[in-house]
Design a protein around this nucleic acid. Structure first.
Lengths: 128, 128, 128, 128
DNA sequence: GTGGTCTAGACCACC
DNA sequence: GTGGTCTAGACCACG
């Protein structure tokens, strides 16, 4: 399900991070599942194992994956971890920036609310 | 009103772009207003003129400012420009990414709606 | 009493080493006791015998266990062995590293003292 | 002040992370200070810039440094950030393991308390 | 087989 | 000049 857009300006490893997070929210990956090995994934996506490894490391530091040397990398339980208020503050700041952009692109409040509703519906997933 | 945070990891020129956009939404800058020249702005912000120039170029390319040779740089009327659907699609994609992050940070839909409402209120400005 | 957490990032063999050491301190294993054979232990823990074997080797090299050919593996008397000052120096270094981490995590001296007291109490065991 | 022991089994980048944290606690590095560039540091320590970069990234993710592209890497204010309870729990677990080792090395409670006092005194630094 | 570390060298964005 | 990304390839520890 994971795909990488090689023409995007977004770094490969970030794309991979996002893609995996999305798959988890969609339920394609569930807590405890093993994700493809660094080498497999690299082969599949035609990229360097180091780049895949970097993505996995980021996801580990964000408490999304756990990796066990010699065994592989696994999906963690999402909500077994306290909320990270630092990152939440950063996220909020990001939202603000997007709203500024939106206004300058003449996107109305209503449109944005609609987007949110759509995407919340599409994701949904894990949250109880 | 424009300020730059020298310790932010966000590039200076992007901060400046955002800051000007924000001032416009807040009504501190109005359509037709002349903004300081590159050199003035650079002096005022203790930045390299090249960096200010880059920010202005970005704002021109985004139809936020317009430069009249020999006269200066001016704020454009926001809605005198057709909606740029391509950039709107990109923006929508960005929103989606933020929502994915939010779910992984255990931020609820309700919280996000609250953020948006707050920030919409704070900005508000030009759009009715 | 020995258990292995298959989702920990700590190597299995190290977990086993620690677990046995802990059981000794708790008095669940006493000097002279025979511990299960490599094969038995492997079966019981659903692990590869090689991994169990590695753990036992480490414990032997650390003077915690002793293997008598044809008879089995036994728990040694803790203080019948001279203090290994080299390993003690390494341990001290480890403590220092943990303290550096603690300070950066804004854990106060007092908290650390409390932790130590708690854990000393929980272990206690052999030493008076 | 930073040094790397090339014969240690501890990865270079971890040694560097520790060394920088220690220098901060000792007050050799203060909030706002710029630390040597990736390339300078690499040259000075005779290691690859990627390895240095990795250390800096770790420190950034741990809120110890901030890095600004094109400008350099800077020491952050230590206590301007909420306590990371996840990492504190991990640290506590580490302390427990060290205590287990200590008992098996016949190190008494008293000795450990002395170590702590010594090292607390040596570090001290930032905490008010 | 798994992931982790390290080196070397290329190219890019920012200042 | 700064750091960031990516590739390629070597070597090690764990199971």
């Amino acid at each position: 399900m994971v795909t990488i857009n090689k023409t995007s300006s977004r770094p490969y490893y970030e794309q991979l991070v996002l893609s995996i997070k999305e798959d988890i929210l969609h339920g394609l990956l569930e807590p405890g599942d093993r994700i493809p090995s660094v080498r497999e994934m690299a082969k599949q996506l035609l990229m360097n194992p180091n780049t895949v490894s970097k993505a996995y490391k980021v996801l580990e530091s964000e408490q999304v994956l756990v990796t066990v040397k010699g065994k592989g990398t696994f999906v963690k339980q999402l909500d077994e971890v306290p909320r990270d208020e630092i990152r939440i503050q950063k996220l909020k700041r990001q939202f603000k920036i997007l709203l500024i952009e939106a206004k300058h692109l003449q996107v109305s409040e209503k449109e944005i609310s609609t987007w949110l509703a759509e995407e919340q519906a599409e994701l949904g997933g894990i949250q109880k």
